[in-house]
Each structure stands twice: as C-alpha cells, then as structure tokens.
Design a protein around this nucleic acid. Structure first.
Length: 358
DNA sequence: AACGCGGGGAT
DNA sequence: ATCCCAGCGTT
C-alpha cells in the first residue's frame, strides 16, 4: 500500500473512464468480442508489438484458427505460417501449447480464474489481467508500457522510481487503483491515454483528462521513466546459400537450438565451406552455374545483429544436394504457405531485384 | 531482480 | 541509429 487518498483514486478512475468512453478507441478488432479465446490471441500478439502491426495478423489468425480446438488440433507449422513476419515466434509456440493445455486440462473451455490463466504458457500477470478484464469483466489490473508510463508520471511523487523494487511498487499501485465499477473502460482508457495522449515523447498534456493533478505535468517533468541502459549488440556474420532453380529456392528447417527454430531459412555455411563450395557441389554431382554474391545485408534482432553474406547459386539439375538436410525446393510464389522469418523475404527480394536488373 | 528473448515499426 | 511497443520466461 502506498497510502493513496481515496478521493484521488476515485477521481483518477473516473477521469480515465469518462475520457475513454468519449475519446478512446472503440473499434479495434478484439473490442468487438468477449470471447476469451479471441481476447487471449490479441493480448499475446500485442506483447511487445504495436496495435497497428498486430491487426492484420490477428484477423488472419482467427480466420484460420477460429476456436481453441482448431488451434490445439493444428500443426505447429501451420501456426508459425500465420505468425510469419510478426516476430517473437516463441509466442506462437506458447499459444499453440497453451491451447492444447486448455483442451486437456480444462476440457477445451478457457479458464476464468487468475491462477489457471496465468498458469498457461505465455501468459504473465499483465496478460492474465487483461483477459480477466476484457473477457470476464473482472476487477484485475494490467501493467503494460502504456499503463506504466501514465501511472508513473501521474503518481511520480508516491513512487520511488529509482528503487530496485519499482516494478513491484507499480503493481501494488495499479492494484490499488482498480475501480469498483467500469473496469473495462477504465483499463482500455489507461492504454488509450498512454498510446494517444501520454506518449513517450511530446505528450499532449493539454488534452489529458488527468493533467489537473498530474505530478509530472505540474513539475514540467519530461521523462520520468527509467531508461534502460542500451547494451551494445553483438554482431555475427553468416553465409547464406541461395540455391535457385527457376522460381524455386532451397529452404531448410532451422534446428531447435539455433535462431528461428522450426522456421525455414537458407542453408548456411562456414567460411571454410564457402571456399570449398564449388568442389563440394561438384563432388555431389550438382550442376550449377556461376556463384554470385548478393548485396550485403544486415538483419537486427533484439540482442544481435546478423551481417549476412548471401550467395546466389543457379542450379540446372533438379536434384537436391545430399549435404543439405531437412531441406526442400520452395516456389517463390508459395512463401506464404511456409513458416519463414522476415529476413528470408528480404533476401528473396534481393534475388528478384537482381533478376529484373539483368 | 536482472536478463534474455534471438522483432519490427516509427522517427 | 535510436527508441518504443497491450511482456514473458529464466536464472
């Protein structure tokens, strides 16, 4: 407990709720339903991912997997296909696994109590709270980036932001702020305020329904949030081999220990193998034309930068080299039916560009 | 409690 | 280049 005045709590919730009903977002796809399954899918997609990015993926996903059972019975591959390009693919894995858990443990019915929900793979405290609010109209709190920012700025004076326990302080604060009525519009309002008014930079405080008692606004504080020390990304160099035969390319399923497990990518090789590549191909009686290097490319991941050297190898024979395991010829117009990370599309775009320029 | 996760968009 | 995003799982 942070010893908040009851009147300020009531005022805060009331301001947020009233503002939301008039000025907030009401037409997002997942706002048209109370189906916990659909709410769940949206919340998982929205983890560390912006609303605008999620919308098309959400619509595609629900069309393909309209129910918990359809998701549980699907192959992981078909789930990853829909997820391709959205990133953080472990979310898709977790979603799939949790659907199967719901099938077996809860007879296919989405659980409605916090402990059961938060016990599902890929669902933490905040996502569980959001599901309980939006699907079950239960009084729970959430703490996403929006809420964190709004609450930290408004209640800056009652928080010890520099403390190591600051995240726990924020949780106890938002728990304390949960209103007795109107939890849906209150919760949605906090996020809408964070997204549209109380923005990270250049917040529009003049339009904020909380500005009258906002600590940061009163003090002219700009950034009261802790900025995480930016770590230097390590860089790795990879050689990708783009075997191309007509409109087909060879893609290989990633190992479970590497980057992008279970997704398709180009075969890789070491620098040593690269030098010996013509010899290796000949040894496999593999008929190939000239080996050309595509323009250099870097792909950035959360904690890693990949410097990519891609080599285009035109193939005339229809066989597949034995030295490439778990691989297949994929038609370039058929990529939407395969689970691939975005970097593969980038490289294929380079291949297509080269072809047209010649 | 801090860190890794091995993305992607906006500026 | 940098920052930010409807956070979670692991150690």
């Amino acid at each position: 407990m942070l010893g908040l005045d009851e009147s300020i709590k009531d005022w805060f919730a009331s301001q947020v709720s009233v503002w939301q009903l008039k000025n907030g977002r009401h037409d997002l796809p997942w706002q048209k339903t109370r189906d916990p399954y659909k709410i769940w899918v949206s919340e998982v997609m929205l983890q560390q991912t912006q609303v605008k990015t999620v919308i098309p993926y959400y619509l595609k996903f629900l069309k393909k997997f309209p129910s918990i059972r359809s998701l549980a019975e699907a192959d992981l591959d078909s789930v990853l296909v829909i997820w391709s390009g959205l990133g953080y693919y472990s979310r898709a894995r977790n979603l799939h696994q949790a659907a199967r858990t719901i099938n077996t443990r809860y007879s296919g019915r989405f659980p409605s109590d916090f402990e059961s929900i938060v016990g599902l793979r890929g669902i933490g405290k905040s996502t569980a709270g959001a599901i309980l609010v939006f699907a079950f109209n239960e009084r729970f709190s959430i703490l996403d980036a929006n809420v964190k920012r709004v609450v930290t700025r408004f209640f800056y004076n009652v928080l010890d932001v520099g403390a190591t326990h600051s995240i726990n302080q924020l949780w106890s604060l938002v728990d304390d702020l949960v209103p007795s009525e109107g939890i849906v519009e209150y919760t949605q309002g906090l996020m809408d305020l964070g997204a549209g008014i109380c923005k990270p930079s250049a917040p529009i405080c003049e339009l904020c329904p909380l500005n009258k008692h906002c600590y940061a606004y009163a003090r002219g504080l700009f950034d009261v949030n802790q900025k995480p020390k930016s770590r230097q990304k390590s860089v790795v160099t990879k050689n990708y081999l783009v075997f191309k035969r007509g409109a087909h390319i060879i893609l290989q399923k990633g190992s479970s220990s590497g980057i992008w497990p279970d997704l398709l990518n180009f075969p890789e090789c070491t620098n040593d193998q690269l030098i010996k590549l013509p010899f290796l191909l000949q040894q496999n009686k593999f008929q190939f034309g000239e080996i050309s290097q595509l323009p250099a490319l870097t792909h950035e991941l959360t904690h890693l930068k990949i410097a990519i050297r891609a080599f285009l190898i035109e193939i005339s024979s229809s066989r597949r080299p034995r030295l490439i395991n778990n691989s297949a010829w994929i038609h370039m117009s058929d990529l939407d039916n395969h689970p691939i990370p975005k970097v593969v599309r980038k490289i294929i775009a380079l291949v297509a560009r080269r072809k047209s320029s010649v």
